[in-house]
Amino acid sequence: MTPIEKVEGRAIPFGLKNVDTDVIIPAKWLKTISREGLGRGAFETLRADPDNLFDNPEFAGAPILIAGDNFGCGSSREHAAWALGDLGIRVVIAPSYSDIFSGNAVKNGILPVVLPQSAIDRLMEVAATDPIHVDLDTQTVTTPFQDRFRFDIDPFRKMCLLNGLDEISLTEKSEAAIAAHEKKMATDQPWLIPATL
């Protein structure tokens, strides 16, 4: 996973509320056995409109996406995070996310920034013409016009994103505790282990 600390660039002023993962990446793109190349299918339905923001040359290569409430709701498909990553998005800024999407984003080196709607409204305005700066270390979003918005993030997620850490390797350090739990389960509740049919 690529570490993430500071991201500066244009932000796509998308702003829509309740954007589900079927909109981010339609199901027909899920028939892949790899993680690569899903940017082509990202927001496919919306991109059928020739005036869509994603294909607007103004926002080509924009690393930031500004969205509305409940971004990434619906299906658990991690393909949504892969598709955003493949589009070049490193940061999403929205008032809220579905729990599953924000987890998937972090695991793929995408920072989900939570800011109140008033801040989103201001950033949407700036994004139309100017770049936005996101700093994970100081947990701030700033604009060239002296706007400064501080955001909260879970410390563990922050650490993983800053260092590009692989969670499985971290968990493997807890081997003794996992083995102890398994032993207790086998002794106290042996019926929890399903029979071999």
Binding site: S76, R77, E78, E182
Partner: peptide, 14 residues
């Protein structure tokens, strides 16, 4: 869960 978590559970059962 997402696919990274699927891999995490397969590998660690946690």
């Amino acid at each position: 869960i997402g696919t990274s978590e699927v891999e995490h559970v397969l590998a660690t059962q946690t």
